[in-house]
């Protein structure tokens, strides 16, 4: 049986019918074709699927699409605006905060959440804030630097 939902994703309103068991990650990827949100695990461990749900980072594999009814979702595709990268995107590129790029959308989304709550985090606050997002490539060193440099840019 389908459930009718209406979700605003990256500023665009989508309405449709979804199976109750459909995950938000599946809805975004399979129904809306927003494949920038990645799926790296099946135990809510990796954070690759992180999106902003009403402004807070959530693991979209741990949210049912029906639970997002009436919500606003931002995915990696919605970070840039007006043809300009979001400061966190620029920082990830400039600090070499990504290698294979698979964890990157989720990392950037989580970083946006960290900085919106704590605009000037310490290194250890950044590391704690990122602990739900796994990266196997970068060893986190440059991801931490990217978050620091985005913080500096947002503050200036």
């Amino acid at each position: 049986m389908g459930h009718e939902i209406t979700v605003t994703v990256n500023g665009k309103i989508y309405a449709g019918s979804v199976e109750p068991r459909l995950l938000l990650s599946q809805y975004l990827r399979d129904e809306l074709n927003l494949t920038g949100t990645h799926v790296g695990c099946d135990t809510t461990s990796c954070g690759a699927c992180s999106v902003l749900l009403n402004g807070r980072a959530v693991k979209s594999c741990n949210v049912l699409a029906v639970m997002a009814d009436g919500s606003e979702v931002t995915t990696v595709e919605g970070l840039a605006s007006g043809g300009e990268y979001h400061p966190i995107q620029r920082a990830f590129r400039d600090e070499h905060g990504l290698q294979c790029g698979f964890c990157t959308p989720g990392m950037m989304i989580t970083a946006v959440d960290i900085l919106s709550n704590n605009p000037q985090p310490t290194e250890s606050e950044i590391r704690t804030g990122l602990r739900g997002n796994l990266c196997r490539c970068t060893g986190y060193h440059n991801i931490v630097k990217a978050v620091q440099s985005a913080a500096a840019e947002l503050a200036s």
Binding site: Q89, P105, M108
Partner: peptide, 16 residues
């Protein structure tokens, strides 16, 4: 890196 533009915007195509 030249590969980053597609990776930071969600425009890369992985198998899935």
């Amino acid at each position: 890196r030249r590969e980053d533009a597609r990776l930071i915007t969600g425009n890369a195509t992985y198998v899935d």
